[in-house]
Amino acid sequence: MLQKTGEKYLKEGVLPHMWCSGCGIGVMLGALLRSFEELGYAKNEVVVVTGIGCTGKADDYLVTNALHTTHGRALAFATGIKAVRPELKIVALMGDGDSVTIGGNHFIHAARRNIDVTAIVNNNFNYGMTGGQASGTTPGGKLSSTTLYGNPEDDFDISALACTAGANYVARTTIAHGWEMQQLIKEALTKKGFSLVEVLSPCPTNYGKRNKMGEPLDMLRWLRKNCVPSDAYAKLGEAEKEGSFIIGKLCERDKPDFNTRYAEIQEKAMSV
């Protein structure tokens, strides 16, 4: 069997891509496109919605339908498309700034509304495009161009946020776990209701450089070392848990999605 490359969804002549060497976005995008191909998605049945930031540039590489929007609002645009086109596969590709910092309100409400959209969040712990400022996921104490003396604020746990807000499917992975990442993305894409895959990802140029992981491989090693499946995480001591991330599927439910429930509303309204 031929290996699926996802190349058929890639615009001709766009490589090499714009992202820095050692950046995880290209790896994440590759996993997404291979997932599309393995699931047999046609280009016209997919809409990729992006916001602003390094991850927000991804649509320019794709030949699926796409909507490139404003900073933080990709999920709100995606909600409108999905509401009127329930048969389409809607993917919102965002960074940590886009999804849970400026766009936090749309993020929690998309999960609560259980709109059948797959959010894929490239979490690289800072704003890469604007020069490495702290985001809502920069851990406490860490350095960035706006936390020169250490971050006085703690970070969001993106996955826990989505899970608490009501998402039907939540998984965390890293770009250092390529095969698992692809499996989780496929599960998320096929799951009805709001699904999230949080992809922990290196930003050697900004976050890595300021936090003693300036070489592309440094952050990969750090992700490898500090990301553990939930059963292994449970065995860790309290000190080790601090700074570690649980990866894998974190939460799954089967609540009916917004469109399913709205179809019932339409039926009721029409019978009045």
């Binding site: 929007t69 709100a76 909600t79 409108g80 498309i81 509401a83 009127v84 309100n105 749309h106 029409m270």
Partner: peptide, 28 residues
């Protein structure tokens, strides 16, 4: 819902106009 359309109460006005733009591109 009576005319087969969709109504979504969004989380704020930013999201409201965003959803409107998305729905329009979906053909509504």
């Amino acid at each position: 819902p009576r005319v087969g359309g969709i109504f979504v109460q969004m989380e704020d006005e930013i999201g409201s106009i965003a959803a409107v733009v998305g729905a329009s591109l979906g053909g509504a």
